[in-house]
């Protein structure tokens, strides 16, 4: 039984949690505000910024005009979607086989796959950089797609595996009793049941790839730079142009922020490898 709680206690909880939540969210809120300001207004005192200045979309246009924002945006889209879907293509059969036709070593294989994720990227920075240089992959989107796909492949396989595992065996047996052939079983029963899990997996991996900031910073220059690298170019001295930095930042994080809100549950599953339920 859930215990009834007095409204006063509830109000107190709401006030405390709301305040702390607001503080956590404040930096994001602040760049949303600043992105709609002129540069002159953006560096004024916070209260003046809020109550004593106009609103403008100017910064968004400037960011696009000066540094071709959409090129970087599309790089980010291509790299994160490309790596995720390529990964999915390779991971689905593997996860499928491990979940539905487990062999003696399935568990060990799975554990080994996860262990590759524990390898610190910096440990292989040098050889990857040199290989990329020698094969002309530096600053190419295809190169990054491949690296990020490899980075996230263990997570994709792992998540799919756990989702497939959750499909109850009795359902498959029921389908067999109902006369479904293997093809029909996959088409009408398994796939529809697996789609939510696959969607979650895709969502989380797009987020991870979008925000990846080790390989994207080290392996790109101008051409293939996604938003992480583009924003890094504001490190100095352009960072002092608050309005433009804010506009660029908001555009870079908005899509992922929205996707992230939908994927809280999957985040726990995907990033803890099932160790927390």
């Amino acid at each position: 039984m859930a215990r009834s709680v007095s409204n006063r206690a509830k109000a107190l909880n709401t006030a405390v949690a709301g305040t702390l939540g607001f503080l956590m969210f404040f930096p994001i809120l602040w760049i949303i505000v600043l992105s709609f300001k002129t540069e002159e207004d953006a560096i004024r005192a916070p209260l003046e910024v809020l109550f004593n200045s106009g609103w403008t979309l100017e910064s968004f246009f400037t960011v696009q005009e000066r540094s071709d924002y959409f090129k970087h945006f599309s790089n980010s889209v291509i790299i994160s979607l490309g790596s995720t879907f390529l990964g999915l293509l390779i991971a689905v059969p593997a996860a499928w086989a491990m979940a539905f036709v487990p062999a003696k070593h399935t568990k060990n294989v799975l554990m080994w796959m996860l262990s590759t994720k524990m390898l610190p990227p910096v440990g292989v920075l040098v050889p990857i950089y040199l290989i990329f240089r020698d094969y002309g992959l530096l600053d190419t989107r295809i190169g990054l797609v491949f690296v990020l796909m490899m980075m996230n492949l263990p997570i994709i396989i792992w998540m799919l595996y756990t989702y497939f595992k959750e499909i109850p065996g009795e359902i498959l047996e029921a389908a067999r009793m109902d006369g479904a052939s293997l093809r029909e079983e996959i088409l009408y029963v398994l796939t529809p049941m697996a789609i939510p899990g696959m969607a979650s997996t895709v969502l989380l991996n797009i987020i991870l790839a979008w925000n990846e900031a080790f390989w994207t910073l080290n392996l790109t220059a101008a051409k293939a730079a996604p938003l992480t690298a583009f924003i890094a170019s504001y490190s100095s001295p352009e960072g002092l142009f608050y309005a433009k930095l804010s506009a660029a930042s908001i555009m870079a994080i908005a899509p992922i922020l929205i996707m992230g809100w939908f994927s809280q549950k999957q985040l726990v599953r995907g990033l803890t490898f099932g160790a927390v339920k």
Partner: peptide
């Protein structure tokens, strides 16, 4: 509270 996790490091 959770939003900051989705902000890219840069």
């Amino acid at each position: 509270v959770i939003a900051p996790f989705f902000v890219m490091p840069t």
